[in-house]
Amino acid sequence: MTAQILVVDDEKGLTDVLADLLESEGYEVDVCHDAVSAREKLAAKRFDAAMLDVFLSNSPAGLDLANLIFAEHPTTGVIIMTGYADRADVNLACSNGAFTCIDKPFNLDDVIKALDLALTTNADSDGEN
């Protein structure tokens, strides 16, 4: 079954790139540019992985979204993206369950590797449960 990926970033230029990349790799991609629409998507659909920008409209709403996913959607793998963020916040998100943090600008091969890892790890833990 095609993996469902949620991409949340307020930079449309970046979500276009990620949607193009991930769709060409065979994933099904939903894009949101703000936290409110991302919460609606998460409530309406199950995602295998979510790629979340830390800062959405100049607030660290991406980290709040990560915490929401950890609590309510534990089977969704989380990858944090940042142009710049307080490393302590990012480290906390990773210790809470995010797979990794990708710094912008990023290498597309690294994005695919991180996503594959998140999906594989989540699939393994689903199998264990």
């Binding site: 970046l14 276009d16 990620l18 710049y84 912008k104 600008p105």
Partner: peptide, 11 residues
């Protein structure tokens, strides 16, 4: 800066 750089580099 890093957000648009990400878009330039990604494209």
């Amino acid at each position: 800066i890093n957000n648009p750089l990400g878009a330039i580099s990604g494209n």
